[in-house]
Amino acid sequence: MKRMMVAAIALCALAGCERAKQDMYDQPRYKTYAPSPLFEDGASARPPVAGTEPRARGAFADSSGGRHGVDLVQRDVGADEAQTNPYPVDMTLLKRGQDRYMIYCMPCHSPAGDGDGLVVRRGFPAPPSYHQDRLRNAPDRHIYDVIKNGYGVMVPYGDRVEPADRWAIVAFIRALQLSQHADVASLPPDVRARLGAQP
């Protein structure tokens, strides 16, 4: 009998916990711009505290780079509006592009850019090879826009890859294309000699 009594009390207590849990989800709250009698001005929305610094917006919001403010955002806008790569193509840019490519592009496009990445080998639709004439002859802006907005089954990466990194990836893709389709006449003499010596 005593056990039955303890079990009944436990069940009642558990039922009360469920109600308390539901109350946590259904807390009283104000909708945006709703009136409130708690404050003198009658508004529930509160103005920023004096001395509050505005945060960066756009691609730099919620990032450590956001603290640098308007200059970076303006540079970001300039890079996003450029029709050709606005950065000097040097080893620093290519290394950055390679790094970003390996993170965002390689799973589908493969390390060589031939469209045979690990995701494709597991059944995902194959992207086109970067080494086909259509993409070798496409303007840089086309590749940039595909990274930003997506294309076909490729999702947009505009929210993950900032404009400067998109241009770095474009530069690296151009290097990949050149690695497979370089004009032999444009190579340095020692490289041409090594190529001629190969069987």
Rank of each mutant, 00 (worst) to 15 (best):
A164R: 10
K148S: 11
I143V: 15
V153P: 15
N149H: 15
A171W: 15
D159W: 08
R160Y: 08
I169C: 04
V155H: 02
D159E: 12
V155Q: 05
P163W: 01
G152M: 02
R160I: 02
H142I: 05
E162K: 10
Y151R: 10
Y144H: 14
V153N: 13
R166V: 01
V146R: 07
I147Y: 00
V153L: 07
A171Y: 14
R160V: 03
D165C: 04
V170W: 02
G150Y: 06
V170L: 03
N149S: 14
P156H: 01
H142M: 09
K148G: 02
V161P: 11
Y144G: 06
D159F: 09
P156V: 00
A164I: 01
P156I: 00
V153Q: 13
R160K: 11
P156E: 02
G150N: 12
A168N: 08
W167T: 03
I143D: 06
I147G: 00
K148V: 03
V153G: 12
V155L: 04
P163Y: 06
R160F: 11
Y157A: 04
V153S: 12
W167A: 01
I169S: 02
P156K: 00
M154Q: 09
D159T: 11
H142G: 06
A164V: 06
R160D: 07
A164P: 14
I147H: 01
Y157I: 00
Y144P: 10
I169E: 05
D165I: 04
W167P: 13
R160L: 08
I143Q: 07
N149M: 13
P163R: 01
A168F: 05
G152S: 06
H142T: 10
A164H: 13
P163S: 03
I143R: 07
Y157F: 14
D145K: 12
K148D: 14
A168R: 09
I147N: 02
I147Q: 01
Y144R: 02
D159A: 12
V170D: 03
G150H: 11
P156S: 04
E162I: 01
H142Q: 10
E162S: 09
M154W: 08
I147W: 03
A168M: 06
A164T: 08
A171F: 14
K148M: 12
V146S: 06
R160H: 10
V153E: 13
D165R: 05
W167F: 04
D159H: 12
G152I: 01
V155Y: 06
V155E: 04
A171R: 13
R166D: 01
N149F: 05
E162W: 11
R166Q: 14
R166F: 07
K148R: 15
G152D: 11
I169G: 06
N149W: 14
H142E: 10
H142N: 08
G150C: 14
G158T: 03
V170E: 02
R166Y: 04
K148P: 07
A168V: 08
G152A: 00
V153H: 14
K148L: 07
V153K: 13
V153F: 14
V153T: 15
G150P: 11
D145T: 13
A171N: 12
R166W: 07
D165T: 05
M154K: 13
R166N: 08
D145L: 10
D159K: 10
D145N: 15
G152C: 03
N149D: 15
I169L: 02
D159R: 12
V170Q: 04
K148E: 15
V155N: 03
G158H: 05
V155A: 09
V146N: 05
E162N: 13
I143M: 12
